[in-house]
Nucleic acid binder design. Structure first.
Lengths: 347, 347
DNA sequence: CGCTATAAATGGAACGTTCCAATAAATCAA
DNA sequence: TTGATTTATTGGAACGTTCCATTTATAGCG
């Protein structure tokens, strides 16, 4: 049944009674071939169960159609949503994106990038792992392969970035909490080795500044960007003498964790402590209580990144402009007013 | 900076003053090369920024080190967890898995498989998209590329499957509901074009049978395997004259949807209506109320699938045994007793 | 009919590796 | 010293495609 030796273009040529060049032309959909010949060739292809060998082709063409998508945490639904947005665009362009997970591990990331490069990818869309060294992409850049960063950027690097307006999002969220009457605020999760962290924290601090929240009433708790991290942050925060009454969380996972920890203490997010997330993953809407979060148009960012990548490949450049996506605050149930300071809020 | 023409093995040979064969040997870590020569070559590799061309190599070797992972719905956290389990194993084996998403679309799946095959994958781990035609994998089988199905199987196919014991899981869950005093039961979500559906539904029906729940008191509502589908199922179920008091859901996403719909009606899962999910995704534990679900050891199944694949590749066979993973019911808050039929349940 | 113009098909070199068989150099045994 | 053995290194022929430069067939025109 299964012919052992895999068929090549030459086998097809023999089968169809044409030359290998003709077969190649048919494979590429060239109009130079007489339609009848083309169908004959196509039939032969079908008959022998031929599979195109893209490796061999790339040897001559140096122009693959695969794009690598390197993601730091596939279990975060946020990245899955991002990937889906990209795929929509790539599919339309006849490009197949291969996704690889680095699990937030720079060593693993190194391996994955190496493998992708060896495979001859046309471009790389990357959300770099935490702790990525500044030089990690130098070789890839030198090889002339276009790279686009999504969501995260590296400290000093000329690689284009597609990301939401983290600063603005944090300002929006923080102002919302202040308007709700909260005067002792916390920022939960993330760590300072992430540029995004500084952007989001920076927005938080700026809003505090503008609205006269003194530094002594701001609590910053670093932590893992996961549910577990969020739980830990909340515990730390409530252990203090003058605990905060509201928190802006680094992302939704942290927010979910904080809410879970609240429930464990018999407290309710929204009523007893205000929680705001970041990213607005699909789950946020369906949580209980529903999570107030900064919406970043995840799928839109994914589409944007894919478009930028396609353009870079097409114009064979390695440069592109950054894109900072608009954000908006989606107010739900988790961010109620401060009970001890019922200022009220019209909005 | 970036040398335009990419360096080849020959450039390195020139740089290091050896022959291309020597470079090739060094690249493969052969012990035949004098250590000093090897270091000299490695230095040259570093200096010229060489990237190995795996396509060219495969032309001779016909033995790539990439494995394709084809997943039907990346946004379902279940599959992300599965992927993570596989990656652990593959990483240790020095293999890089490329993940591709089919978004439950057989046409897209066709494209993805084609692309992966052209890329010369060593093997394929697949969770087939809904509506996959029985012949979809014939060509791949004929090409001698090992395939392993995970979670889902195709109606008639000799391809090995790694999946949980769906039947048993459904029996466990259903018996739990019956012990809780429920006498009118529903099965929510999924559709009959999925083999898994029949396995899970079969377990449900069998348990009903054994415990004397008449067919008239069993309600089966097909639906999308998503939150949205779950919401619709619940609405349909409660619209009837003699609505059920408990439901076993096709998977956790459906269960979350059903719980959400309950809340919209002012009802509470656990207290007013019992809900049991399937898969026990990480989220289940953290939901409110926490979801009772059938745990399938997702990561373990992923690891198992990866191991089977590695063994198939190594022994160059296309056959392997099915693996049916053990399941267990994790009882949480969402599956309380029937209020109108407080039989009680010691366990 | 001969000529040119167009259309269709073809052979061969190249792409960057691997691997076999062969060579060159170093070591050993007698 | 000579030949045998071991250790390092090397050319060259594949592998399956693309693409350029040709060749062959077909049509058009006077």
């Amino acid at each position: 049944m299964a012919s052992r030796a895999k068929a090549t273009i030459l086998d097809i040529a023999r089968e169809a009674g044409v030359s290998k060049s003709t077969v190649s032309l048919v494979l590429q959909g060239s109009g130079l071939i007489r339609p009848e010949t083309a169908t004959r060739v196509r039939k032969a292809i079908e008959d022998v169960g031929y599979v195109y060998n893209r490796g061999a082709a790339n040897l001559r063409k140096a122009h693959s159609n695969v794009i690598g998508m390197v993601i730091n945490d596939l279990t975060n639904p946020f990245f899955a949503e991002l990937a889906v947005g990209m795929e929509r665009v790539f599919q339309a362009a006849g490009v197949v994106p291969f996704i690889a997970n680095t699990a937030e591990n720079p060593v693993r990331q190194e391996e994955v990038l190496k493998s992708l490069m060896e495979q001859g990818v046309a471009g790389l869309i990357v959300s770099p792992a935490r702790g990525t060294t500044p030089g990690a992409f130098r070789r890839i850049e030198a090889a002339g392969v276009p790279i686009v960063f999504t969501m995260r950027r590296l400290p000093e690097s000329r690689i284009p970035v597609i990301a939401p307006d983290n600063h603005r999002g944090a300002v929006l969220a923080t102002e919302h909490l202040i308007r709700k009457g909260h005067r002792r605020l916390a920022f939960f999760g993330g760590s300072s080795d992430l540029v995004v962290y500084h952007e989001r924290l920076g927005g938080f601090l700026e809003a505090c500044e503008t609205h006269g929240i003194p530094a002594s009433d701001r609590l910053i708790v670093e932590g893992e960007t996961s549910r577990k991290g969020g739980m830990a942050c909340l515990e730390t925060a409530l252990a203090g003498a003058q605990p905060p009454t509201a928190a802006l969380c680094f992302n939704d996972a942290v927010a979910f964790g904080a809410m879970l920890a609240l429930r464990k203490r018999g407290l309710e997010a929204g009523a007893d402590f205000a929680v705001v997330g970041f990213d607005d993953v699909a789950e946020a809407e369906h949580y209980s209580p529903a999570l107030t979060s900064v919406a970043v148009d995840t799928a839109g960012l994914g589409e944007r990144a894919a478009h930028v990548m396609l353009k870079m490949i097409q114009s064979r450049t390695t440069r592109a402009e950054d894109h900072i996506g608009a954000v908006s605050l989606v107010v739900r149930e988790s961010s109620g007013p401060d009970r001890n300071n019922e200022v009220g809020d019209a909005a």
